[in-house]
Simulated assay, not measured.
Amino acid sequence: MAKRFAAFEEDHLRLIAEQQMFFVATAAPTGRVNLSPKGMDSLRVTGPNRVIWLNVTGSGNETAGHLRLDPRMTLMWCSFTTRPVILRAYGSARTVHPRDAEWAGFYRLFQPIPGARQIYSLDVDLVQTSCGYAVPFYDHVAERDTLRRWAEPRDEAAMQAYWAEKNAVTLDGFPTGTPK
């Protein structure tokens, strides 16, 4: 059965630490809903009601565009191992770019990742657990290094050119705030 919490509890933090992947969902007031899997060592719970996660360059940039129009965000962790549980964190998020004053303080909480593009800061107003009884078992084999290999040879100018071409607007044409 689903249970609601006002903040993360120790059991939630253990579950998050055990996961190799999490999911993020956002939506603008109109247009498509975006749901994306995220991996790498890119997430930190920095308080009972705060999560930050480092977003790296990808083929799209829906989250940034959506948050400019509507700050709602949901994060989800799903246990694919022994614990049949799904954990969701709901709240309001904002985008922090490398040009922003807060970037350095947040970024130092992570190991550097080539192609780091934004950090999202989520103020959590609801934590919910639900059963994962129908979620299949999966074994984690390894982290992919494809993104690192793609990003490492690119200098800042090449990365910004890619962002301008691929990451400046969402699928629905909303600006993302990523430098052009």
Rank of each mutant, 00 (worst) to 15 (best):
D172V: 00
S92I: 03
R32W: 06
A142C: 12
Y90N: 01
G173H: 09
D139K: 15
A101C: 02
A157T: 15
V33S: 08
D123S: 12
W53K: 03
F8Y: 06
L126T: 03
P114S: 09
D139N: 12
L35C: 14
M159Y: 07
D11L: 12
R149K: 14
D41F: 04
G58E: 07
A7E: 15
V24W: 03
R94P: 06
R99W: 07
L171G: 13
T129M: 05
D70T: 00
P153G: 00
C131G: 15
T63H: 04
R99E: 11
Y138K: 11
Q20P: 04
T176K: 01
I86V: 15
R32N: 10
H97D: 06
D145C: 08
V127C: 09
D125Y: 01
F174D: 07
R14W: 13
Q128A: 08
Y133M: 13
V141N: 03
N167V: 01
T129F: 08
H12D: 02
I52M: 06
P71S: 06
A6N: 13
T30M: 06
Y120K: 10
F5I: 07
H12Q: 00
N55K: 02
F174N: 08
G105P: 01
S130W: 01
A168N: 08
R14N: 10
A151V: 02
A25G: 06
V135S: 07
A134P: 03
I16Y: 07
L122V: 09
F174T: 00
Y138W: 14
N61D: 05
C78L: 12
C78A: 12
Y107N: 14
L109E: 12
A157V: 15
